[in-house]
Write a protein that binds this DNA or RNA. Structure first.
Lengths: 345, 345
DNA sequence: TCTAGTAAAGCAATCGGTTGCATAAAAATT
DNA sequence: AATTTTTATGCAACCGATTGCTTTACTAGA
């Protein structure tokens, strides 16, 4: 357990002052480039590593970014984090990641922890039942930048990164209509969350644009769990006139519902055509494969992290409320395809 | 953007020395309890938060634990991390989480980052192709404790936390045998990893104990991806005498294989009984529901984190190579049940 | 009353970089 | 040759909490 090498050790060996060593290692312009090289190689030789705590203490910043997400256990979130990690590593930032498990209470606690850890900035995707951003006020007051992604909420001085969920919901619903569906059910999550609210909006718009009426009985708000999917299948079974199309705002729930529907004798897509959301791997496990909306997690993570870091480095200002929209893609698979695909020439 | 409150501010207002304030806040015995209360309430009133960097710098420790896992996007890993987070928060430790994405290269990079961040300890689950622990040598040399969980590798001075994969594999295979299977195929991952190696061992032992011979053609090493599952189904379809039982070391892969088998006209469990591993939620999506091995992620995370923290606090020594075994459970579902369940009275 | 003992609090050094402000040496200008 | 400018480096204070050692103020025992 040898002692750590410090800039003082390097300075002593090279007959220089610690100040010079510090500047050299930070590539300060006032240092002669020969000196820099000499110091750099000596540092490497001695196995020097900068003491982040001394540095942070003096600089009053931490090179740490806090990340709060509802859950880690989705393919989507995993790719988001991979993207963030990549960017953060390249920029010499650390990530502190925590999950709210969809509860405001835990989100509040996480925010406090992040604050006490003095993160330089925050990347957040909101829990299901978060009503407001009051628990982030300490950050706003201190001018600590925060970026919301995917599960967002309008907020002054806060960049949002998201896909156009209204349009995506519109496309998904329109696709079902084009496949001949006329009674389309929409199953979604807590509409406090933009992602669900907007998909619902898109659903309604698509119906209206195609001359269909919105039947409130066909809009079902749930928690989108496996259990909810099963219950919905049961509900559909007992409906006087069941839907002929089903748009679920989450693949996993869609898939569990499909399984139960099949077990109850519904044919998919014959009786009911189904579209999910997120392009979770499970969508390719179920038979028939699930039509879904894909959007780029890795890219969303990279952009979120990069925007935050750029802002921290003064390269970009997040002073005006601004929103970055990413592209999505409707991935059509068998669960919704009633017409044979158009001939490809 | 007000300035932060420091112990000097508190000291000045209360006409005390910073030393006393520091000791009081750390509940030092030499401080009068009235003084402690007075300081504590003043600190709260002023919104004081300790500067971890000053503290870390002085104490030469970071109150940070590094976590390296292959991937974040499994239900299992998400629960593990939830458990770690809980324990770490309660003990005032921070977590730095990174994923190796199953690549040694990234694992090495992550280890370096963790080292430079001066984590107090490390919790690691190894990537698929990690051959040795050389990239953690810097930690061993410095005496920084490390605990391996789930994907482990024997190592001096390193606690391992794991389930008895041999026994679990044995139980899964025995269950299939009890259901009347005689040609049981085993599909597993890279047997560099204990989890796969051991499950394979258990599989072989069970066969032998029940008087069945091990047929190498029935042991398939793959990456356990969706694609691998599909290919395996195809392979089985073309076998002269297909297996009547299938034990897959991963639920997701098992499920994709099942789907393809069904599409090829195999009945499950009639023609082939299937058992998976991990109790992933997807096991309850597929029809028939998948028999699988459940083990407690949250608990594994809690125990790993708690053991590490105890060691850091000197309450527990990880000096001898020791292994903590957690319980698992074979969850029998329809995919393997050929006999009606015994009457429950 | 005097001294030893104890409880409570303060002094000052320390952890390892960073940075504003000198300073010294070399180069350029007059 | 004298002066200004540029380049390269050093000095020393600072960031905020911690802690070994002292000091002060009481209390108890002789």
């Amino acid at each position: 357990m040898e002692k750590d090498v410090t800039i003082y050790d390097i300075a002593r060996l090279l007959q220089l002052s610690p100040a010079t060593v510090s500047r050299a290692l930070n590539d300060h312009p006032a240092i002669n480039s020969n000196t820099k090289h000499m110091i750099a190689s000596k540092a490497k030789e001695m196995g020097y590593r900068s003491n982040m705590f001394a540095s942070n203490l003096r600089r009053q910043r931490t090179s740490t970014i806090g990340v709060i997400v509802p859950r880690l256990d989705s393919y989507f979130m995993s790719t988001v984090l991979a993207g963030m990690e990549k960017v953060a590593n390249d920029a010499n930032y650390n990530l502190i990641i925590s999950q709210s498990l969809e509860s405001v209470k835990k989100e509040v606690a996480n925010a406090k922890t992040m604050f006490d850890s003095r993160v330089d900035g925050l990347l957040v995707s909101l829990a299901a039942d978060t009503e407001n951003l009051d628990h982030f006020n300490t950050f706003f007051q201190k001018g600590i930048p925060m970026i919301l992604f995917d599960r967002i909420m309008p907020q002054k001085n806060c960049t949002n990164i998201v896909i156009d969920n209204v349009k995506a919901g519109y496309d998904a619903t329109s696709h079902l209509i084009e496949q001949g569906c006329r009674r389309i059910m929409h199953m979604t999550g807590n509409i406090k969350r933009n992602v669900y609210e907007d998909r619902l909006k898109g659903y309604k718009l698509a119906l209206m644009d195609h001359g269909l009426t919105v039947d409130d009985a066909l809009v079902q708000l749930t928690n989108l769990t496996r259990q909810d999917g099963l219950q919905m299948a049961d509900h559909i079974k007992h409906m006087a006139s069941p839907p002929d199309g089903l748009f679920v705002a989450n693949d996993f729930c869609a898939v569990s519902c499909m399984g139960a529907l099949k077990a109850n004798g519904f044919s998919i897509p014959g009786d009911i055509a189904v579209v999910g959301f997120n392009n979770d791997p499970v969508s390719q496990v179920i038979e028939p494969n699930l039509t879904t909306v894909h959007y780029p997690g890795q890219e969303m993570g990279e952009i979120a992290a990069q925007s935050l870091i750029n802002h921290l480095n003064g390269l970009l200002r997040i002073n005006t409320t601004n929103t970055i929209l990413l592209n999505y893609e409707l991935v059509v698979r068998a669960s919704s395809l009633r017409t044979p695909p158009a001939e490809s020439r």
